[in-house]
Structure formats: C-alpha cells, structure tokens
C-alpha cells in the first residue's frame, strides 16, 4: 500500500481536509454561540417597524453582533428595494438618499465591520 501511496500522494492528505473543514465550521459555531439570545426577537420587531414605512420581507433585514477589539458591535443591515417604497399617510415620508449613497446590497458580499 505504501508504494501505491507514493505514486498517488494526492489521495492521502485527508488530515488537511479535516483541519480546513473544522476551522470553517468552528468559526461559524463560535460566532453563533456568543450571539445574545435577544437577536431573533430584535430582528422580528425591527422588520415590523421598518415595514410600516417600506415594503420589506423578513430576509431583507439582518441583525448581527460582531466584535472589533474590545467593542461589541450591533450591526443592522436593511436591504431596501426602491421599487417597493410604500407611500405613507400621516407619517414621516421616506425620502430616498441621493443615488450615490444608495447602493445595491449584495447578499454575498461580507459586511465590512467598521474598524
């Protein structure tokens, strides 16, 4: 078996695969483990509030707790679709910011935490 292994070394390094898989899964699990319990409720209520002014689906608002040095950061990302702006009666009128500030939210780009 060892001679075969020498001929086909690429089959062998399963330990490296194990290490990479563990690093990814543990990074994810450690982040969610430290998340405070109130996040789901906060997210739900924020969606309700935002939905009074803008058409929004539950998955367009994301709440995260991150960390930068010694500071905990509460991130709230709201994706707003221009086409779905809701006219509001007797309430504050939603005025979209200038086009330069309004940028498409790319769900796949990682949110860059303020340094």
């Amino acid at each position: 078996m060892r001679l075969l292994d020498l001929l086909f070394p690429e089959r062998r390094n399963s330990a490296g695969i194990a290490k990479d898989r563990l690093k990814i899964v543990l990074a994810h699990e450690r982040a969610s483990r430290d998340a405070p319990d109130f996040l789901p409720a906060l997210q739900k209520e924020l969606v309700e509030v935002v939905a009074r002014y803008v058409e929004i689906r539950g998955d367009m608002l994301r709440v995260n707790v991150g960390r930068s040095g010694d500071t905990s950061l509460l991130e709230i990302n709201v994706e707003i679709d221009r086409a779905l702006l809701r006219p509001v009666e007797n309430g504050p009128v939603f005025s979209p910011p200038p086009a330069a500030v309004m940028r498409r939210f790319e769900p796949d780009t990682p949110w860059v935490k303020p340094g």
């Binding site: 062998r12 390094n13 399963s14 330990a15 490296g16 194990a18 290490k19 563990l22 690093k23 543990l26």
Partner: peptide, 12 residues
C-alpha cells in the same frame, strides 16, 4: 497525512 496532528488540534 491521515490524522490531524498535535499542532493542528492545538491550533484549532
């Protein structure tokens, strides 16, 4: 290369 090494586990 079939088993995680001491260093791997320590690092993780």
């Amino acid at each position: 290369g079939e088993m995680l090494s001491v260093e791997d586990v320590k690092e993780i």
